[in-house]
Simulated assay, not measured.
Amino acid sequence: MQLIKIDKARYRRHLNRVIAGCIALLTIGSLGIAQILIELFPDESGSHFHWNLLGVVVTAVTIGWLLNKYRTHSYMTEVVYVWDLKQVLNKITRKMLKLKPAAQAGNVDALLAMQYSYAGSRLLWNLDDNTISMDELALAQLELDRLAEKYQLTLNVDDYDAKILKQF
């Protein structure tokens, strides 16, 4: 997955609308389904927990299906890209305990995975205005740059392929 520049304003606007739409659909759908089921199948005890739960589950599955169906729509481009990038970075993060010692030993794939992780994190954190962790990221990047210089390597995030994580 290549790192690309994202229009922050468009991304935030679309993400906020998708989230608001999901919340509205979950609220209206789950309440609507539950009310219909309660009308059709009333419970003398007054407990309608199972109908309410069924309404939430059906609506949540429907929202998931709709998001998956429209993930290729142009409106969802930035939202889906960021979602996919977060999944890729999460895979790297889960391997980080093994990547760091390998990078110290000069493993090119480990160094490249860490470079991709840092560049991707920087991109995401800028999109989400998460500047609190940027200093920590800058220190980690400096350490990685020192290792790359030590082993006379040039790390290009465009060369990253998720398949290299299998060895760690």
Rank of each mutant, 00 (worst) to 15 (best):
G29C: 07
I36A: 13
W51K: 11
N107Y: 03
A103P: 07
V88H: 09
R71G: 14
L31M: 14
A138D: 02
K150I: 05
N126R: 11
D159M: 01
G46L: 06
L144T: 00
R17V: 12
G64E: 14
M1T: 11
M76S: 03
D128N: 03
V18G: 07
N156K: 13
R146T: 08
A34G: 12
T131P: 05
I36V: 14
T62V: 15
W65Q: 07
L124I: 09
Q35R: 12
L85C: 02
A102V: 09
A103L: 00
Q115G: 09
G32Q: 10
K86R: 14
L124A: 08
K91V: 07
L3R: 10
I4P: 02
V56A: 14
L99K: 00
K5Q: 13
L66H: 11
E149T: 03
L155N: 00
W65Y: 15
L124N: 10
V61C: 11
G120I: 04
N107R: 07
N130H: 10
T154Y: 11
T77E: 15
Y118I: 06
Q115F: 07
V88M: 07
A60I: 09
Q152W: 04
Q152S: 01
I23R: 13
A60T: 14
W51N: 01
Y75A: 09
V88L: 13
N156S: 13
A110F: 01
N90E: 14
G106R: 03
I4Y: 14
W51L: 09
M134W: 03
L67C: 08
L66W: 08
I23D: 12
A138F: 08
Y81R: 01
M96R: 06
W65T: 11
E78T: 01
N68G: 10
Y81W: 12
F168E: 08
G21D: 03
L123P: 05
Y160W: 13
S74T: 05
E143M: 06
Y11M: 06
Y70S: 02
V56W: 03
L25Y: 08
E136P: 01
G64W: 15
K100C: 00
E143I: 04
L112P: 03
L153E: 07
L99E: 04
S74L: 13
Y151M: 02
A34Q: 01
N52L: 15
C22T: 08
H48F: 04
Y160F: 15
I164L: 02
G55Y: 00
V18L: 15
D128F: 02
A102Q: 09
N156F: 06
T59K: 13
D135G: 02
I63R: 06
K86M: 13
A105Q: 05
W51A: 00
A105W: 01
H14R: 01
D128I: 12
L3M: 13
N52M: 10
E78H: 03
L67K: 08
E39D: 11
L155I: 06
I92Y: 05
Y75E: 11
L111Y: 02
L123G: 00
G55N: 04
S45V: 01
Q35Y: 07
L40Q: 15
Q115V: 07
I28Y: 11
V80M: 12
A105L: 03
G29T: 12
R94T: 12
T77Y: 14
L147R: 04
L89V: 00
Q141M: 11
L67P: 01
G64A: 13
L147K: 06
W51H: 05
V108G: 00
A24P: 10
L111I: 05
A148R: 11
Y116K: 04
I28C: 04
L111H: 05
I33H: 08
L111M: 04
A20T: 15
E39W: 09
Y70R: 06
